[in-house]
Structures are given as structure tokens and as C-alpha cells.
Design a protein around this nucleic acid. Sequence first.
DNA 1: CTATTTAATGCGACTATGTTGCTTTAGAAG
DNA 2: CTTCTAAAGCAACATAGTCGCATTAAATAG
Lengths: 131, 131
Amino acid sequence: MQTYRINMKRRSTPTKEAVLDVITKTGKAMSQDAIEKKINIDINRATIYRVLNRFCEDGVLHKVVAEDGKQYFALCLDCDNIHKSINHFHFRCVKCETIECLPTEVNFSIPDKYTVQNVNCVLTGTCKDCF
Amino acid sequence: MQTYRINMKRRSTPTKEAVLDVITKTGKAMSQDAIEKKINIDINRATIYRVLNRFCEDGVLHKVVAEDGKQYFALCLDCDNIHKSINHFHFRCVKCETIECLPTEVNFSIPDKYTVQNVNCVLTGTCKDCF
DNA sequence: CTATTTAATGCGACTATGTTGCTTTAGAAG
DNA sequence: CTTCTAAAGCAACATAGTCGCATTAAATAG
Ligand SMILES: [Mn+2]
Ligand SMILES: [Mn+2]
Ligand SMILES: [Zn+2]
Ligand SMILES: [Zn+2]
């Protein structure tokens, strides 16, 4: 057993605001480079990753790894409201290259003695806008 | 529409045999570097990737991308026999660092106008051997 | 307001992971 | 053996993500 304590000493910085802002406005899961491109101010690559990971630790964002091997970060607001839980499917459109959280819950039964800590499910294809 | 033709002119080489052999014996999904380490003969990195991708094209192997962003390759024999379809869950054990195909089928409903071409579902946690 | 503390940033170096172009090697078939 | 060309080797490249360390700048105390 391990004690887990959320770091409460977060400082509010322009970088954090900008990153969260662009993800919120886009309404999709975004990669580091997509965020960097869409943001007006110049933020270092490593910093963006650190900001994103901090947001994940704090439960503001959640991370998805698509079959392109890249990490995508999406708001967790959707998880609580629209989606049932954090275990929802994600959809990657090969045409518009966007990743979105689906309202579809991931259901599974797991063999005996297995313990699941994380779920990463991505469906790939064509989205409603690119049909 | 595009005509798709499977390349029938595959040659049998020691490399192909060795790669398929180690994957078969391990019985798990393996990454390029794991294969290279476990193989006795010295095979170039790029060659291993090309062999693996060719096997995928030919339906011998299938590829899974885990949340570590790496590609893992597993036998498709299991898909036909043990598993119901190619759309099965995969399990990544954080302790023994192995990835295996689960007999658990992936079921989902997709919103209207979405078309699914590929499914990539990985559960992470502790496997039965590491419990 | 200034001074102090330390979280956050920038920068550079570094580690994979995977791909591609091009030359060389070696299966398969006649 | 000769021919054809798939496959292998090699090197270069691209991208993704991390880490150490110096610097900057929020937060807070005084
Ligand atoms: Mn999501
Ligand atoms: Mn599988
Ligand atoms: Zn789309
Ligand atoms: Zn295990």
C-alpha cells in the first residue's frame, strides 16, 4: 500500500492557462505538437509535456495512446458528465486526424487473478464529419 | 475503390523463420527489441520491422500498440482458434512486462455515421502469474 | 512594497522507436 | 549456372518523450 497525495501547491501560469484553453476550445484529445501549433504564445516542448502530465495527475486531463503511438490528452470534464466513467472508448478519424472521447463505455470481463489498473481503447476509422 | 492483392512472392528466409519461431515459442505479443534480444542470430533492426510488417500484411501476425507507445506483434493463430475474432482485448502486465491476447472480445456500439476500421484495446495491470 | 521560497520554465542533451533510400545478398525458378 | 527480384544490411533520418540543470517568476510572509 502506498499513500497518494495530490500536490496542492500548483501555481497558475500563462502556460497552464493557454494549454488548457486550447484543449477546451478544440473539444478533442490533443497531442503535444498539435497543442504547440495551435497555441499563440511560444512554449517549450518539454514544458508542454510537464504541464499535460501535471494536469493528468490532478485529474484535469486524461491520456490516451493511439495506434500511432502518440499520447493524446483530453479533458476529464466530459468523463464525469457525458461519459459514464473514465473507461470509455476513443475514436481516431484517419481523415481529419482528430481523436475524440466517445460516450461508449468499455465493458469487459477479465480472467481470474488479473488486476486491471488502466484501460486504453481506441477505435480507428472515419468520423461523422468525414463520412 | 482500390484493388488489393496479397503478395504471393514471399521467400522463406532464416530471418523470417527465426522471428516467427521466437514469437510462437514465447506465446505472447512481442516488440521488435524483445524479439531481437531473444533471437540467437543477429538480425538488423529495420529487417525485423519489415519482416513483422510483412507477416501482418499476410495475416500471420497482428499488431497491438500499448500505452507505452510501442508496437507489439502476436500470432494470428490464436485469433482464429481461441479468440472469437481479431477484436479482442490485450493485457499488458506492468510487472513481467508481457503483453498477451485475451480471449475477451471487444464489444461496442458506435454513434451514427462512424465507420470503424481498426480496434486497439489494451488493458494494463497485473497478470495471473504476477499476482 | 520588498524578500524569500520553490514551482515552473527554457534549454540542451539524450534515449528510444520506427521508417526510408540505397546497395548488396541470396531465394526461387528456368 | 543464370536470371530475376525479394529480402537483408547499413546508415541516415524523423519524431516522441524524458531528464538534468540553470533561470525565472508565482505565491506568500514580513
Ligand atoms: Mn476520453
Ligand atoms: Mn491479439
Ligand atoms: Zn474525421
Ligand atoms: Zn505478469
